[in-house]
């Protein structure tokens, strides 16, 4: 459990791939401290021996026969991509 002041927002931003400027960082720090302060109410509740509930119906993930049911239509899907070339998605150079 955390106190409200030990939220390392710069680290969280890096994990979440978000870049905030100074003003935004300041506002987000205050907001997050209030939100975490509010959710800390949970800590007073006794949950000893309670199994976590991940899914409201607790259905095991449904499996389907291992057969081809649809084809990937790359050309159509790439029409909405910001930058492609020769069927590939373009990103800045990673390896020099």
């Amino acid at each position: 459990m955390s106190s409200n002041t030990d939220i390392d927002l710069v680290h969280l931003c890096r994990l979440a791939q978000l870049a905030l400027n100074e003003d935004e960082l300041h506002a987000a720090q205050a907001d997050l401290a209030r939100i975490i302060g509010m959710v800390n109410q949970m800590q007073a509740m006794d949950t000893e021996g309670v199994a976590p509930l991940a899914h409201p119906l607790e259905n095991p993930q449904r499996l389907r026969p291992d057969s081809v049911t649809e084809q990937v239509d790359r050309e159509r899907f790439q029409t909405i991509a910001p930058a492609t070339k020769g069927g590939l998605y373009l990103v800045p150079r990673v390896v020099e």
Binding site: L18, L32, V39, M42
Partner: peptide, 29 residues
Amino acid sequence: KRRILTGTYALSVGYFDAYYLKAQKLRRL
């Protein structure tokens, strides 16, 4: 962004049990 950061916090190392798991237990209750 606030929600993403809250969620990232709850799932990050050291906080997962105290927040995410705790919330799932309360969900069952």
